[in-house]
């Protein structure tokens, strides 16, 4: 997994609530058997017309936001299907951070396992961020993972965001859970030997 430490980037605003993983990556693109290449179909049905032409009114096709690595989205981002392909598609398209006022549980876990930071802020901060980007499409935010801060131009104070300390270390160092779980082998074996409810 790629390490995440700090990021300075512009923002792609998507002020839609309850963005589900079927929008992030529609099911018909889940037929691949590798992790690569999902970014091309990120938000496919919002991004492209039936004939494959980009839809001018969708934010990912707006040149002002090109290359921005922070997605700013309405609450309950990533609800629906467990497909980790949604996190892979965002990462493959160049996103390193998604900011929302809350994330669906499975998506949050999938993002963290993909090296994509789900950055949760309050509803008020989220609204404020949408306003900042509406005023200046090139507004550049700074995410400092070690300090757990989000710095916004024109805001007197950086926003502190929460994150599980173990997950934070994983992201900072590019570790995932497998190495840790494998290291628990002795405890897992001991546990299995005392299980009494398997009949």
């Amino acid at each position: 997994m790629e390490k995440f430490q700090t990021l300075r980037s512009g923002v792609v605003p998507l002020p839609i609530e309850n963005v589900d993983t079927d929008q992030i990556i529609p099911a018909r693109f889940l037929k691949a058997t590798t992790r690569a290449g999902f970014g091309a179909n990120l938000f496919a049905d919002w991004r492209y017309a039936a004939d494959g032409q980009p839809k001018a009114d969708f934010v990912l096709n707006d040149a002002r936001y090109l290359g921005h690595q922070i997605l700013l989205a309405g609450k309950n981002f990533g609800c629906g299907s467990s497909r980790e392909h949604a996190a892979w598609a965002l990462a493959d398209a160049g996103f390193r951070v998604v900011i929302s006022s809350y994330f669906a549980d499975i998506f949050r876990g999938n993002a963290l396992n993909t090296g994509l930071l789900p950055l949760q802020v309050s509803d008020e901060v989220l609204q404020g961020l949408f306003e900042v980007v509406a005023e200046d499409a090139q507004a550049t935010l700074t995410v400092d993972l070690r300090a757990q801060t989000l710095t916004v131009p024109g805001w007197a104070q950086a926003i502190h965001f929460g994150l599980d300390p173990y997950k934070k270390e994983c992201l900072l160092n590019g570790y995932d859970d497998i190495d840790f779980l494998i290291s628990q082998e002795a405890a897992i074996t001991a546990y299995e030997q005392q299980r009494s409810w398997i009949f």
């Binding site: 467990s82 980790e84 876990g109 999938n110 995932d176 859970d177 779980l181």
Partner: peptide, 10 residues
């Protein structure tokens, strides 16, 4: 409960 593919590997 449902899990993502990284968790399937785990």
């Amino acid at each position: 409960f449902g899990i993502g593919t990284s968790q399937v590997t785990q």
